[in-house]
Each structure stands twice: as structure tokens, then as C-alpha cells.
Design a protein around this nucleic acid. Structure first.
Length: 217
DNA sequence: TACGAACCTGGTATTACATCA
DNA sequence: GTTGATGTAATACCAGGTTCG
């Protein structure tokens, strides 16, 4: 795979000290996030030392609650640290301006916050995911309210329909088709009305009957 | 247990390069 | 030899899901 190829080339660079090779023919950096990960994993012990040192040097007064640094996990994976409040705040500010970040902004922000650009990138990805999740929850609540309201309305209309049917049952009642034919939808006001009871538009001075009209809108 | 940082996977877009008609 | 179309590899980025401290 390309990943293996790139990783092996990086190893080659490290062995030969050919830092300049870490560029491909089109002057694009060859080191991508996965290569960076491979690099970190290879230097795991040293990375732990450096991270601990970095945090303590940068935030000597920070409390332990604010910064947590894990030790090596069993797979030798990267540590997970809590970002400081300052770092989080600045990332939040940047996110408020734009919820995506380009390479230059990412690197600038990373440098400013003393983080790796990959950390900034991941933070923005996670932040977008959290925003979307929140929005989904909000939408869910809204849709549930709509559902409840429509359910309520549906029950009301069903009840009203039953009442209308009860009124309709009598000597003149013959069949379903004749029943349907007795009701008309007014094209102007979109109400269902009984022709034999008469119907007036609101503009006409409207005689409304909640029993004999059904609003469609 | 919830939260969040880091990671993994699969997808898409872009770019450079190679090949072929 | 030049040119345009096409395929391929590499890279970057993202969303969605998962792991783990």
C-alpha cells in the first residue's frame, strides 16, 4: 500500500538523514497524517517525555484537573491529553469564525497554540461532529413536538369526522359514494363544506360553522 | 458514566504523470 | 513530435464511527 511505501520512505529518510526527500515531485509534503502517526508511534517513549515536559513547561501553574496526561497504552499508541482552557477557547473562537480550517490557518493556529497541526485538524473534525450531533438532537426534539401536535390534530379531526358522520346518518344516507359527493372543497378558502348548508367566503361576510367546515391548512 | 482527544475507515476532489490514439 | 483523452497513483480533506483515558 501507499501507506507502507510512505512509511518506509520516511524510515529511510530518518536513517539517511535525507530530510529534503520528504517532498514528492510536485513539491507537496509527503508526510501526511498517517505518516505522522507512524513517526509518533516509532518514537513513543520519547514522545511521552516530550509531551510531559512541554505541558509542564508551558503551564507550570495549571492544576492537575485541567491537564491530564496518560502514560503509554498497551499498544504503544499515542497519549491523549486534555487541551488547556486557553487552547480550547482559542480553538472555539476560530471555530466560531469558520467551522472549517485551511492548511495555512491550521498550521498558524497549531503554532500559536503549541499543538501539532494534526491535533488542530482533529479538534475541528470532532467539533463539527459535536455540532452536528447537537443540531440533530434539537431537530429531534422539534420533530417530536411536531409529531405530537399533528397527532393531536389528527385525533381531533377523526373525532370531528365521526361527529359529522353521525350527523349524516339518517333517511337520506345511502352509500359511501353519495356521502363523498355531499362534501365539497372550496377552491378559494380550502375548506370542506356541505353544499346544502351554504358556504360563504370570509370576504363575503362569512357564516362559519365549526361543525360543517374542515380547514385543510 | 459522560466527555473529548485520537484514531480508523471509506469516500471524494485535486493534481501530476504515463500511456495511447 | 505534438496534442487531447484517459487511467492511475499520491495526497488532502472530510464524515461517521470507534477506542480509550
Amino acid at each position: 500500500m501507499a501507506e507502507d511505501y510512505n512509511t518506509s520512505m520516511l524510515d529511510l529518510n530518518l536513517q539517511l538523514g535525507l530530510g529534503s526527500y520528504v517532498q514528492n515531485k510536485v513539491n507537496k509534503p509527503l508526510v501526511n497524517s498517517k505518516e505522522e502517526l507512524a513517526f509518533d508511534l516509532n518514537q513513543d517513549d520519547k514522545a511521552n517525555e516530550l509531551s510531559l515536559k512541554r505541558v509542564h513547561e508551558e503551564h507550570p501553574n495549571d492544576s492537575n484537573e485541567e491537564i491530564t496526561i496518560s502514560t503509554n497504552d498497551k499498544n504503544g499508541g499515542a497519549k491523549k491529553l486534555r487541551l488547556t482552557k486557553e487552547q480550547s477557547d482559542m480553538l472555539e473562537d476560530a471555530f466560531k469564525l469558520h467551522n472549517t480550517i485551511n492548511t495555512a490557518q491550521k498550521r498558524a493556529l497549531a503554532e500559536q497554540l503549541n499543538l501539532k497541526h494534526r491535533q488542530v485538524e482533529v479538534w475541528f473534525q470532532n467539533r463539527r461532529a459535536r455540532t452536528k450531533l447537537k443540531q440533530t438532537e434539537v431537530n429531534c426534539i422539534f420533530l417530536k413536538k411536531c409529531h405530537d401536535k399533528l397527532n393531536e390534530e389528527n385525533l381531533r379531526l377523526k373525532k370531528e369526522l365521526e361527529e359529522l358522520r353521525a350527523l349524516k346518518i339518517g333517511p337520506s344516507y345511502t352509500s359511501q359514494s353519495s356521502k363523498a359527493a355531499n362534501w365539497t372543497i372550496c377552491s378559494s378558502c380550502k375548506k370542506i363544506w356541505k353544499p346544502n348548508e351554504g358556504h360563504n367566503n370570509e370576504e363575503d361576510g362569512v357564516r362559519k360553522s365549526s361543525q360543517s367546515t374542515i380547514e385543510l391548512d
